[in-house]
Structure formats: structure tokens, C-alpha cells
């Protein structure tokens, strides 16, 4: 899969999730490097603490290559029905979920084997993943 397609599908899935709660504003920011990328998505809808925990759990789920390599192809592609953040979680390097003012901020880092932590503003622990 070309990188452009991958990015489109990532944005599709995470946007699908946030658009389910019909926010008035949704901001998507992308930072690309040769071996990785950082995607930041913000909305302005209120989210409960339990919701944040659920999102964090789905996005930082254990790496599942056997599911990511096969079912991961549905990420941001098959949109009939509710979004599935775990499809993203199996593939990414690290995710941060935070409440900001009236909304939510989701940071996603994704990259290959040569992913370089220092090229991004990312917590150190992600480099070990």
C-alpha cells in the first residue's frame, strides 16, 4: 500500500470515530518524515473520563500482527457501521489521548522499523514499541 493510501485510511478511520458524535469543528494535522508520521486530531465535543480511557485502551492495544496484517486492511475503508479504533491501535507506534478544554486531542505516531523518535514530539516510551 502506498503511503498516501495508508494516511488516507488512518485519517478516514479516526475521523469516522470523531464524526460519530457530530462535532461542529474537527481539526486534522499531519507531520510526515521519511520513516514515520504524526497525526493529530482535535474536536470540540465534551468527552467523559470513561470515554477517554476507552479510546486510549483501543488505540494503545497490544500489537496484533495476525489481525493487523489481514483485518487491518479495513481501516478507514469499510465505513458502514461504527468506527473501530482497535484496527488503528494494532498498527500504530504510540497514541496519546488527552482532554483539551471542551474537546479531545488524539496524537497518533506511526512508522516503519527505522522510525526515529527524535524527529517527532513523542514520549520516549514509544521508541521502544
Amino acid at each position: 500500500m502506498k503511503r498516501k493510501d495508508l494516511i488516507l485510511h488512518l485519517i478516514g478511520e479516526i475521523s469516522n470515530f470523531l464524526l460519530e458524535s457530530d462535532p461542529r469543528r474537527l481539526v486534522i494535522s499531519l507531520h510526515q518524515e521519511e520513516n514515520g508520521l504524526h497525526l493529530c486530531v482535535l474536536d470540540e465535543n465534551p468527552h467523559t473520563k470513561e470515554e477517554l480511557e476507552k479510546i486510549d485502551l483501543a488505540l494503545n492495544s497490544k500489537k496484533r500482527p495476525e489481525l493487523a496484517g489481514y483485518y487491518g486492511s479495513m481501516t478507514g475503508h469499510d465505513m458502514l457501521g461504527s468506527s473501530r479504533l482497535n484496527l488503528l491501535g494494532w498498527q500504530v507506534k504510540h497514541c496519546d489521548v488527552a482532554s483539551i478544554g471542551s474537546g479531545i486531542k488524539i496524537d497518533i505516531w506511526l512508522g516503519g522499523d527505522a522510525f526515529q523518535n527524535d524527529q517527532f514530539t513523542i514520549p520516549d516510551k514509544a521508541a521502544d514499541n
Binding site: 489481514y70 483485518y71 486492511s73 479495513m74 475503508h77 458502514l80 457501521g81
Partner: peptide, 15 residues
């Protein structure tokens, strides 16, 4: 098989 498996997954979207 892998080529077909991934493609037909999109036919029914996992249903």
C-alpha cells in the same frame, strides 16, 4: 489466497 482474502473482505465489510 491472501490477495483474494483482503479484497473480498471489502465486499461485505466484515459482516
Amino acid at each position: 489466497l491472501p490477495a483474494i482474502a483482503v479484497s473480498v473482505l471489502h465486499f461485505h465489510q466484515g459482516y
